[in-house]
Simulated scan of single mutants.
Amino acid sequence: MFNNSNKSIAFVINSLEGGGAERVICNLLRTMQDTFTSQKCKVYLLLLDDLPEEQQCPDYVEKVTLNAKGKLIPSYRQLSQWVKTTQPDLLVSFLTRSNVVSTIIGKRQNIPSVISERVNTSSHFATSRTGFISKFMVKAVYPKATCVVPVSQGVMQDLVDNYAVPAVKCSVMYNAYDQASLLEKSQITVNDLPQKTYCIGIGRLVANKNFTLMIKAFAKSDSQRDLVILGQGPDMPALKALAKEQGVESRVHLLGFRENPYPYLVNADYLVSTSNAEGFPNGIAEAMCLGKPVIATNCQSGPAEILTGDNNTRTESYLAAEHGVLCKVNDIDAVKSAINVMEEQGSIEKYQQKSQQRALDFSYQHMQATFSNVMNKALKKTEIKETTND
């Protein structure tokens, strides 16, 4: 349990645009509300960019919006000035840019920093034009953070092996999910569900999510279902053209972004995820909370850890695993075969039960306990350092 009263804690993230990290930071703030208020802590949420907000910050948190316009140097300057003026006792950040500037500011102003890494860094920056610079900054800065909170064992292993982050500084904290709330949201009526049974994919329409692979594998599979894809992004026109080219234009429904995706998810027969890289895939965990079977590519990191319990699981093609079907990354035939396995008689019912069992491991109680321990550890390290200096 968190046992530091009257502390001021500043959470930092790029913005509250729609996305997994943005949703998680707001959920974490809600989860910690009783703890923070009982300890009389002052809690801030710093947004580096002034952008439209898809996520709702809890009322007890004081939100401060900067205007760095997505740039690193303005992010550092503006956040540094705020920290110098306000002097919080702890900085907690999410996403790479926020993590880098928060860590540097924390070191220079003697404030402990807790950084949360949401993606597998090596895979996430592998195809980016600026990926080399981003990876250099991570390796130079992340080891200087007081504590590092990877979202999965796989993300932690990548940071330790490739970015010089000491394992002793790391505490894995899985995302947590309010199953009752998800179920309630899933019961809201929507009017654009397909008439036929369908499987579903959810995520931003960008290269890293590899919806191109999903559509190609779906077109080659034996499935008679439709495919619903929820998400917005630059790949939308190309994906529509691809569905037409593959002869499944009438069966692939690209519905765009939905603030509430859960009615579409709960009415699907199963979820398909074909990402090239993840941190801890919220879409997979949320599908399992709603009892949906899952097919996922074995990308770094998260899917194998969720579906098999072991992040080091290898897949030559596809694997009908303990909690879902895992397939090789960027392999059309593997995903096609995984879809065919899920279409076999009894598979959907079997994996519905498996998903419900696995979902019990992602509770808010576990998240709260882990995060409280991390904050205690970070604050204690600073107190020890101050005592030593005295």
Rank of each mutant, 00 (worst) to 15 (best):
A180G: 09
L239T: 00
M173Y: 01
R251A: 13
A207Y: 03
V228I: 09
A241P: 01
Q195K: 14
P237H: 10
N208S: 11
D192A: 12
V165I: 07
N210R: 02
N175T: 02
V252P: 03
D192C: 08
N175K: 02
R251S: 09
E249H: 14
E245N: 09
S223G: 07
A238F: 06
T197Q: 09
A241V: 07
P166N: 13
E249W: 03
N162I: 04
A176L: 05
V172A: 12
Q246P: 12
V206F: 00
V160L: 05
D226C: 10
V190I: 13
V248K: 01
V160Q: 07
I215F: 00
V172C: 09
M236Y: 09
K240M: 05
D161M: 13
H253F: 11
A217T: 03
C170L: 07
R225N: 07
K196Y: 02
V160C: 03
L227E: 02
G256T: 07
K244D: 11
L182K: 09
G231R: 09
H253E: 04
P194C: 12
G201A: 14
S250W: 01
L183S: 05
L183P: 03
A238N: 10
T212A: 11
F211H: 07
Q187D: 15
V228Q: 05
D226E: 15
G256C: 12
Y174D: 04
N175I: 03
L193K: 14
N210Q: 08
P234F: 00
L227D: 04
Q224P: 01
L239A: 06
K185L: 14
I215E: 00
Y177H: 14
K244N: 10
L182Y: 15
A217Y: 01
I215A: 02
P194H: 11
S221M: 05
E249R: 07
E245A: 13
Q179V: 06
N162S: 14
L239Q: 05
D192Q: 08
Y163I: 06
T197D: 15
L183W: 09
L254R: 06
D178Q: 13
E184S: 11
Y163S: 04
T212W: 02
